[in-house]
Amino acid sequence: MARRKTQAVITGISGRLGQLLARRLHRMEGLRVIGIDRRAFSRKPADIEHLRIDIRRKACEDLFRTQDIDVIFHLGLMHDPRKGAGEHHSWNLVGTQQILEFAQRYRVPKVVILSTGDVYGPQSDNPAFITEDAPLLGAQRFAALRDLISVDMFAQSYFWKYPEIETVVLRPAHILGGVKNAVSNYLRLSHLPVLMGFDPMVQVLHEEDAVSAIVAAARPGLRGVFNVVGPDALPLRKLVALTGKPTVELPHFLLPGVVNRMFQLRFADFPAAELDYIRYSATLDGKRARDIMRFEPSFGVREAVEAALRTNIFDGGVEGVEAA
């Protein structure tokens, strides 16, 4: 009997990371890639299959019923401060629950969930090395993260509910590249705001390294929660200096009210709670991923910053990206 192809499902395949992951897997031998995303996948390689449906739809189940899926990469999480809390909760929580239900019902042996390092949240009293068992306090000052924290914890509950599924939860540091996320958007601004008297340590991760970590997480036998950390942490102002752009020094105590009002009026793209990311550190301990997942980043800080600046999403450089 000929060896069956390994079948991988990627949710959120039309996002930047989904596309990168799809292309990376596509280059591997004996692998069939099926994507689920309601958005279009531009310049899709011909033999990648793409189902343009909402992961919350029942139609999604047919895929799992009719195919023997070997691994699910769940990247289809949404974080967009402009969208309401209801849509976030429904998309992220119901969607994740659905995917994990299918995995359990149709015996998918491996599920990799791309959570985020933001679940810990920037706090002045964070330890310099946040380990995977630290409490997820990200939402204590930034309520819009509640659903992502719920997803992370929900995924963790599968470790003991369905131990036969190898569930891996990845919590990457700030991903830089063609992705549309807060930190990449920040670096693409023409003037970078910094807070007077604050210079937190930040960790960045090149998008290709993030994809490498996702691929590494699919290794059979691997399960658990992993922080994914790129090159060494550096002070924010050093990171900002790498862009060569001018900075704007702002006094923090004046900002929250102003920024929130600007966000409401659509003059600002981020709510005031996100100011904490340029105020306090949230640096992760990547030891577990290094030791157990054997993940090593191959891109430095400079390359990651270049990758973020190369793509100017506001000029339409990245299409069909809803969330990273």
Partner: peptide, 12 residues
């Protein structure tokens, strides 16, 4: 120290 002259705690 890292390439940017600090340790993980931000000491330079």
């Amino acid at each position: 120290l890292s390439d940017f002259g600090t340790d993980s705690f931000g000491y330079s």
